[in-house]
Amino acid sequence: MSSILTWSIYVIVFGALGVLALRDRAKAKQAVKVAVKSFFGMLPILLAFIGLIGLLLGLVSPETIVRYLGQEAGWWATLTAFVLGVVLYIASLVSIPLAASLLRAGASMTTVAAFITGLMMVNTLTLPLEIKHLGKKMAWSRNLLNLLFAFAIAIVIGMVLQ
């Protein structure tokens, strides 16, 4: 599914660039210049970030997380799951099946919800990147508010779906 999506994004974006090139060559050239500059502007920090998540997930494997959180119970497990969710970066197509296996391993609904909301809403590893693009005010306030809301939402999901 994701590869079809990716290819359609390529077709749309490069199609648009082609249309622009036909209509206005100079502008298209300018767009390519900005594109190249954006690419290499983003690359250094993204490489570091990718390396870091590869390192983290290589050391803390999904199986380890499931084994640990499945056995734990109560508030401590919920809190641990939330903290793990907040500090890790796991693509959602991996993290959601992982959360499902947590549930099967015996974790409570609140714990699973806390893991999911922490992962999705609080973006700790990308924070330096967010600050670079959007400034400290916006990046910090967005992530801190999301931290509060993520925890609250997890608790409510746990209450509703108990």
């Binding site: 660039l17 502008k27 983003m42």
Partner: peptide, 15 residues
Amino acid sequence: ILIPVAVLMGLFEVW
């Protein structure tokens, strides 16, 4: 994903 995003940024900028 970075390649089309970079192109998108270019298109946004000029278009």
